[in-house]
């Protein structure tokens, strides 16, 4: 079973944080396209959260079609590569916006922030 490290901040709803972290685990391939997810109970114990909260997070991922349920077999990651790419792009876009707006806060223009990224990124 692929073990994911979950981290939480008690000031935000736990199920939302589970949705976010499971989404990352899926687009990063930690839970690969088409693969079976651990059971709700296994995931809950792994994250040290209530199984009901985990179920709620999985229901949300299912309504986004990132995962699907096979009646007797459990829950699987979608095989829809276009959907996975789309979500990855959305996550990347959030990160870029955060980066550029944080850089703007310390007085670095957009053009310069790209230079910084090229020079210092990956260090």
């Amino acid at each position: 079973m692929q073990v994911i490290q979950f981290k939480f901040d008690n000031e935000r709803p736990i199920y939302l944080q589970l949705v976010e972290q499971l989404r990352v685990a899926i687009v990063s391939g930690a839970y690969a396209a088409g693969s079976r997810l651990p059971s709700v109970r296994e995931l809950a114990v792994m994250a040290k959260v209530n199984p009901n909260t985990m179920q709620k997070a999985l229901t949300e991922l299912e309504s986004d079609r990132l995962i699907f349920t096979e009646r007797t077999n459990g829950k699987f990651v979608t095989n829809d590569q276009r959907l996975l790419d789309k979500i990855k792009t959305e996550l990347a876009s959030d990160l870029v916006q955060k980066y550029t707006s944080d850089m703007a806060k310390i007085g670095i223009t957009y053009a310069d922030s790209i230079k910084y990224l090229k020079q210092l990124g990956g260090q």
Binding site: N10, E11, R12, P13, I14, Y15, L16, T53
Partner: peptide, 15 residues
């Protein structure tokens, strides 16, 4: 609900 209270108050249950 713990999660609803967190969302409403933007704080942990402890806080």
């Amino acid at each position: 609900s713990a999660d609803k209270l967190r969302a409403k108050h933007k704080a942990s249950i402890n806080d």
